[in-house]
Design a protein around this nucleic acid. Structure first.
Lengths: 136, 136
DNA sequence: GTAATTGCAAACCGTTTGCACCCGA
DNA sequence: TCGGGTGCAAACGGTTTGCAATTAC
């Protein structure tokens, strides 16, 4: 776990932060509400305010990355700067599948160059129906 | 203008709807707040509720498309089913540049197939600094 | 000890909705 | 006429914040 990242910034390593980090090892993609539910289930009562504050702090310090797959609520995942990836999102069951395609990455760079644009970040979200949901 | 689309669905062609449609011919990308401001500037006082209702109706009927470039508010543009495109978004001045790359589209299809996924929609947003903003 | 963290409740902000009135076809 | 459209104010839902108490280091 990236406990070192947290402590190197003068942040304190609290029970709640640990509990939230642990959740991310079990569930790759989590939103604030889901975190709240899961923590409650394990008897860990954490206020919503704290969850948002922890997530904001984690994001600022590069521990997690925030996504906006749908307009409703933000989804977070552990940051991994060495393994960029994009997402397939099932609009039925909300399952998220990660993928990486270096040809697409290269084409994006070309497009940026053509438009004299300096890319800082990008999101490629493919929305559709996953194999499970296609059956039903 | 796609006035026919509106009327063929039993919708009424009101002054407000016309005014909003006209705005989209001048500004490709608009959010509810911007629309409100622009309408006020031309002396056209329209309540926020109406703007949201018109946009929702337009979206439902395929007149406009909604985007969530940033987490704050939704951005709309006129729908054009024959000319799909993706976006470069300047994080400094919020300028939006459209692009289309058929190789990327093909690669997306491949990825979907590999994951037994049926793509319904996708968003490719490249965030960065535009040529104008790079200078300053 | 002291600065970061937390819980609570209230505030925020974009968006939606209930209701009574208005208007386009 | 009549069903869609509109304004107003209140509601909503995710998220943020002020404040006083708590805790990690």
């Amino acid at each position: 776990m990236n406990l070192d990242i947290i402590q190197n910034k003068g942040l304190k390593l609290t029970k709640h932060k640990l509990a939230i980090l642990k959740l991310f090892e079990l569930h790759k993609h989590l939103d604030a509400h889901k975190i709240n539910t899961l923590l409650n289930e394990e008897g860990n009562n954490v206020s919503a305010a704290t969850i948002y504050r922890v997530l904001a702090s984690f994001e600022k310090n590069g521990v997690v990355v925030r996504h906006n797959f749908n307009e409703d609520q933000a989804v977070y995942e552990l940051a991994d700067p060495n393994h960029h990836h994009d997402h397939l999102i099932c609009t039925k069951c909300n399952k998220v599948i990660e993928f990486y395609n270096c040809q697409i990455e290269l084409l994006q760079e070309e497009i940026a160059k053509k438009n004299s644009f300096k890319i800082i970040n990008h999101h490629l979200n493919l929305y559709g129906i996953c194999s499970e949901c296609k059956k039903t």
